[in-house]
């Protein structure tokens, strides 16, 4: 086990930031910590790295107790923070070289590592730029490069794609997948469920410092009480027909959004009646476009457990 966090409790006076959090991350996997803002993801990372003390529990990394002074363990860890931790006074190359130099003493090796990191995040042509001249996405990529240039075995990424354009986000996610393919262990925190679904082997969903569920994406979505949801764009449909569909066996709900002309039919779990729905529409000469079938998402699971969305704006 690369990361073992057991019964971690962290309190800030009256506020319980982490409430008996448990985490186990295996070698070579991408492990996601998913939860809304303020749920305790960053606090969990800070406890994991002994950046802050905690009131109960213990942390082991690579089977060894983690502490503030355990430099041997620190050498194996790379951190990519939510806030961009680079110096505006240094160029891209200098930034990477500076942080890499804290781990790698040999000049030649360091130079090669820095070169690799620059190539890895695709910033070769920006290497002489100062961070202030870079776009938000490129700064995020530089942040990533600074955290991984020394080739750590465990990489912790704390919301590395916040406020990033789609192209850079894609780039960063591809980088992370590449790191995992190279045998690195990754702990990835985010509040974007799509990212977790895309890259994580296993995950924990957190809220208010507590673990809500953990497992693979499939295992967690299986926990949802809801079934599939079918959405179709229909320009003309009667109230009677909407009612008829709603009363069909296996259908949980049927709503029509007249403004956007969207019919939304939710089925009970395990009762996929898509053929039945298509038959009813066909019999009533209802034409439709853009029909989509959606499985329950991590957000649905979160919503069912907590009664709120993972993201406020979802």
């Amino acid at each position: 086990m690369i990361v073992e966090m057991k019964d971690i409790v962290k309190r800030y006076k009256e506020v319980v930031a982490l409430d008996y959090l448990n985490l186990e991350v295996k070698e070579g996997e991408i492990y996601g910590l998913l939860g809304p803002n303020g749920c305790g993801k960053t606090t969990a990372i800070n406890c994991m790295l002994s950046l802050i003390s905690f009131d109960n529990g213990g942390v082991k990394l690579f089977g060894e107790k983690m502490s503030r002074t355990n430099n041997r363990l620190k050498e194996k860890i790379g951190l990519v923070m939510q806030d961009i931790g680079v110096y505006d006074e240094l160029t891209v190359r200098e930034n990477i070289d500076y942080f890499c130099g804290l781990y790698i003493k040999d000049k030649k090796t360091r130079k090669a590592y820095v070169e690799e990191a620059i190539e890895f995040v695709g910033m070769k042509k920006f290497e002489k730029y100062k961070p202030k001249k870079l776009s938000g996405g490129l700064r995020r990529r530089l942040n990533l490069a600074c955290g991984i240039a020394h080739k750590p075995e465990l990489i912790i990424l704390d919301e590395p794609t916040v406020a990033v354009d789609p192209q850079s986000r894609y780039h960063i996610l591809e980088n992370i997948k590449e790191l995992a393919r190279n045998g690195k262990t990754v702990v990835y925190t985010t509040h974007y469920m799509e990212e977790v679904e895309e890259i994580c082997d296993r995950l924990t969903i957190m809220d208010k410092g507590k673990t809500l569920v953990m497992g693979t994406v499939d295992e967690i979505t299986e926990m949802s009480l809801k079934g599939e949801i079918v959405e179709a764009k229909i320009y003309d449909i009667s109230d009677a027909l909407i009612k008829e569909i709603g009363n069909t066996e296996g259908v949980d709900s049927c709503e029509y959004d007249a403004v956007n002309s969207i019919l939304k039919v939710g089925f009970n779990k395990g009762a996929s009646r898509l053929i039945e729905l298509l038959r009813i529409l066909n019999e009533n000469n209802i034409s439709f476009v853009d029909l989509t079938v959606k499985k329950p998402s991590l957000n649905d699971v979160f919503l069912e457990i907590t009664g709120k969305e993972l993201r406020d704006n979802v």
Partner: peptide, 17 residues
């Protein structure tokens, strides 16, 4: 000091005491 900025946090988790 790790709490004061992202760069110092990065220094804090480095193996340099």
């Amino acid at each position: 000091e790790g709490y004061s900025s992202a760069t110092s946090k990065r220094l804090m988790i480095s193996p340099v005491g």
